[in-house]
Design a protein around this nucleic acid. Structure first.
Lengths: 194, 194
DNA sequence: GCAATTATTATTCGTTTGTATAACAATTCA
DNA sequence: TGAATTGTTATACAAACGAATAATAATTGC
């Protein structure tokens, strides 16, 4: 609780000048922690409410802070949404690579693990599908987001191509680079479709 | 041009009371035509600007009318967007069926025509992809739009299943209903992915 | 333990949004 | 031809939005 002090805030009735008004309690966090909290609150909002209803105020509520704080860490809402998208893409590719890395070192099993991981939880679940739906339109209208998307897609395809190449090699088959590229694109298309 | 008359609008200076202000010229259209114009302007906006920036005012500009008119034909913006989505879905399925119907009556060629049509223009082009991206999130938050989407998807899958069944029959192969259903779903997934 | 710094809350601002209402004008019908 | 109807424009409005600024309090460094 704190006492009203500012002159401009004083109501006309002098009695009210003594009124106390609750001020939000808060904890002070390190910069990295706060930024991460805000990013995750943003993702949570987009997944739950959709991009259109993801407002600065809503994100602040979800993060347990006041809207003004967001501007202290991000110069605009667009920048926050971009940071959230970067985090989302990184998380997906990290999970995909983890799934492969935690599989025994055998080319075909690894390719299989890659495909399975990209078709099941946690990569494909309600939340991530909602996020995908929320972001997909924004990518069209933001150069920065389109770039992040493109980079993520290329990394993804490269991973797929490497795994396919190793699997084919293990089977004793040789394959040209252009074939590999086509296989990578096809695999991605099928996984995306499902 | 018309003369200012309303008292509340009169500026303080009496001279201005004689000022003439341009009033937008307009043509009177039949109800069906206007509704269609508004629906198409809405689709045009969503494709060009995305769902988020598709405002009542922007739609009105695109349709060459004033925002108020929209409320004369649709009780809310949501209703207009829903009508636009219905039109969009109908158009897609109509084009798909046309492509099949205009092919010689041979089961395998027809299935082939169906697949080709759903992977190339005019069903798959920039505009329709943009519309798809714009609508996909709205479907999650509108019961009515989700229903339209579900119905459209079921019609689409039924068409696919019928074509697949005929193609298999022509090859002299029998197939169970559940297999057919699975084939229909798989075909849809692959087409969507590509 | 006090002054400076800055993370955080509180408040304000100008704009845009969807919608409601009022004014106007083209058409219809007697 | 003129009064009623209604399609259309013009205006108004309250709420919500992103952003900016002001006030406050926790932390830091001396």
């Amino acid at each position: 609780m704190y006492r009203l002090r500012r002159r401009t805030d004083l109501p006309n009735w002098s009695d009210l000048a003594r009124m106390t008004i609750a001020r939000k309690a808060f904890r002070r966090e390190g910069e990295d922690i706060r930024r991460m909290e805000l990013v995750q609150a943003t993702l949570s909002c987009i997944a739950q409410l959709g991009m259109e209803r993801t407002t600065v105020r809503e994100i602040a509520i979800k993060a347990g802070v006041t809207p003004g704080l967001i501007r202290h860490y991000f110069t605009s809402k667009d920048e926050l949404v971009l940071a959230a998208y970067v985090y989302y893409v990184d998380q997906l590719s990290e999970q995909s690579r983890e799934a492969v890395a935690s599989t025994v070192d055998e080319p075909i099993l690894r390719l299989s693990a890659f495909i399975t991981a990209n078709l099941s939880a946690p990569i494909v679940d309600r939340t991530n599908l909602s996020l995908w739906a929320g972001f997909i339109e924004a990518i069209r209208f933001s150069k920065a987001m389109a770039e992040v998307h493109r980079d993520g897609y290329m990394d993804y395809r490269n991973d797929a191509e490497t795994l396919i190449a190793n699997a084919l090699k293990a089977k004793g088959r040789r394959v040209s680079k252009s074939h590999l590229r086509r296989h990578g694109i096809a695999l991605n298309a099928i996984i995306d479709g499902l």
